[in-house]
Design a protein around this nucleic acid. Structure first.
Length: 323
DNA sequence: CAATCGTGGCC
DNA sequence: TGGCCAAGATT
């Protein structure tokens, strides 16, 4: 296996650390609760990391950013082919920025949550206008882009620029919940306590912190998974609080599920699928065929228009947005 | 803070 | 078969 790439570009930093929020005294005193987790996890990562295209040096910050958008709630296996096509077609932010937003929605294909495509396009426009076409390395500037929240800003800054940020995604949250807190699952919504813990566990030096971020995430994705976790392959099984406690079942409030069948989301999905596959305006009648119930159908279409995913035209025609 | 927002694969 | 889950963001 190829060694997972190191953070590529040096990037003349000089970025003055944002005035640190006069933080609450995080966690006990030493920033190291219990035995060291970093070395085993990072060593494991060196041996077991997947060779994903966005981890290769040639991906650059734009590749990392595109992958992060696509990976928001969508599995790696489905992202791979779309990622490759996307980068081949729009190798730089400015290339995407020139396109109609509807082209981004079409190229997004069946990745789901198509608003992400619109936001990625919007981010490309903003990067072109405000940052000279280069993905910013500053966390606050990343956070200001459409579609980028706390997680994605930290991920891009860390993976693309090698910076030191807590990268708290669903994988890392689960790993920390188990290994450190001793429970099976993290809370439904990210809590301040989780952020404090992630911050406290961050290695001091930048390169190691960036490596830890990628490694702990990969551990959650490959070994410490939501369902059938593989403790026998886990590099920190011996120190895992949850395992040492006998792997008690989740108690707390039920983890909220996702319903889909019969929802507006399903209707929206069908409507957009028709528009994606059509290369030109689509008559209302064609859209009417995707769902029998007229009230819900109309509401779904209105929603898509309101979201900017669909553009109504004169004469009862609809198309993906040109502007 | 909770609801909303797609899609498909897996056990 | 169907609930659960997948590198979240936004309102």
């Amino acid at each position: 296996m190829t060694a997972p790439t190191k953070p590529s570009q040096p990037e003349p930093a000089g970025t003055p650390a944002v005035p640190s929020p006069a933080a609450a005294p995080a966690v006990p005193s030493p920033a190291s609760p219990g035995p060291d987790l970093h070395s085993p996890v990072i060593d494991w990562f060196d041996e077991n990391a997947r060779d994903l295209p966005w981890r290769r040096p040639e991906a650059g910050a734009w590749g990392v950013m595109v992958s992060e958008f696509m990976l928001q709630q969508t599995p790696v296996s489905r992202v791979l082919p779309v990622y490759e096509q996307w980068l081949a077609r729009w190798p730089r932010p400015a290339d995407l920025a020139r396109e109609a937003p509807g082209e981004a929605v079409r190229a997004w294909g069946r990745l789901g949550y198509p608003r992400r495509a619109l936001r990625l396009h919007g981010a490309a426009v903003a990067i072109t206008e405000r940052h000279g076409g280069d993905v910013p390395s500053d966390h606050a500037q990343l956070l200001a882009l459409p579609g980028i929240g706390e997680y994605t800003a930290a991920a891009v800054a860390s993976f693309a620029y090698g910076q030191r940020h807590p990268v708290l995604d669903t994988n890392v949250r689960r790993v920390l919940a188990r290994a450190v807190t001793g429970v099976q699952y993290p809370p439904n919504a990210t809590t301040a306590a989780e952020r404090r813990l992630a911050r406290a566990l961050l290695p001091d030096d930048e390169p190691t912190a960036a490596r830890w971020a990628a490694a702990s995430m990969e551990l959650g994705a490959l070994v410490c998974t939501a369902k059938s976790e593989s403790c026998h392959r886990c590099p920190i099984a011996a120190q895992c609080a949850w395992r040492l406690a006998g792997k008690p079942a989740h108690d707390g409030p039920p983890r909220r599920g996702q319903t889909y069948a019969g929802t507006d989301r399903q209707v929206r999905g069908r409507l957009l699928a028709v528009l994606r596959e059509a290369h030109g305006p689509v008559p209302q009648a064609a859209l009417d065929r995707v769902w029998h119930e007229p009230v819900q159908r109309a509401r779904a279409l209105d929603g898509l228009v309101a979201d900017g995913l669909v553009e109504p035209m004169a004469g009862g025609l609809y198309r993906l947005p040109l502007t």
